[in-house]
Computed example of a mutant assay.
Amino acid sequence: MISLIMIQLFMFLLLFLLGYLIVKKQAYFLLSGFSAKTEEDQQILIKNGYPQAAGRVLMNSSFILLVGLGLSLFEIPYMIELSWLVMIIYLFVHLLYIGKLDNTKHRKRNSLILKMTIVFTFGILGWASYMGLQPNELSISDNRLQISGFYGVEWPLDEITNIELVDTIPKIQVRTNGFSFANRLKGHFRLEELGKGRLFIYRNSPHFIYIEKGDDYIFINSSDSHETKLWYEEMMNQFN
Results as ranks from 00 to 15, higher is better:
residue 224 D to K: 02
residue 227 E to L: 01
residue 13 L to K: 06
residue 186 K to C: 03
residue 238 Q to W: 11
residue 110 N to F: 08
residue 188 H to K: 00
residue 214 G to V: 01
residue 149 G to Y: 02
residue 122 F to T: 08
residue 236 M to C: 08
residue 80 I to G: 09
residue 68 G to E: 04
residue 10 F to Q: 13
residue 49 G to L: 10
residue 63 F to W: 01
residue 142 D to P: 05
residue 127 W to R: 00
residue 52 Q to D: 05
residue 97 Y to M: 07
residue 4 L to M: 15
residue 99 G to S: 09
residue 99 G to C: 00
residue 94 H to S: 00
residue 170 P to N: 05
residue 121 T to I: 09
residue 98 I to W: 15
residue 85 L to I: 09
residue 112 L to I: 04
residue 63 F to C: 15
residue 159 E to I: 04
residue 58 L to W: 06
residue 109 R to V: 15
residue 156 P to W: 02
residue 117 T to W: 02
residue 55 G to R: 09
residue 148 S to Y: 02
residue 17 L to D: 12
residue 69 L to H: 06
residue 225 S to I: 09
residue 230 L to K: 13
residue 124 I to F: 02
residue 233 E to T: 06
residue 123 G to R: 06
residue 151 Y to V: 11
residue 134 Q to M: 08
residue 156 P to S: 10
residue 161 T to R: 12
residue 234 E to L: 07
residue 57 V to L: 13
residue 230 L to P: 04
residue 96 L to N: 08
residue 112 L to Y: 07
residue 96 L to T: 03
residue 182 A to T: 00
residue 127 W to G: 09
residue 240 N to I: 00
residue 219 F to D: 10
residue 127 W to K: 13
residue 147 I to H: 06
residue 203 R to N: 03
residue 30 L to H: 14
residue 132 G to R: 04
residue 126 G to H: 12
residue 180 S to I: 05
residue 201 I to Q: 07
residue 42 Q to Y: 01
residue 2 I to A: 02
residue 211 I to C: 05
residue 191 L to T: 10
residue 65 L to F: 00
residue 102 D to V: 10
residue 13 L to N: 11
residue 232 Y to N: 10
residue 60 N to G: 10
residue 108 K to G: 08
residue 22 I to H: 00
residue 51 P to V: 07
residue 99 G to K: 08
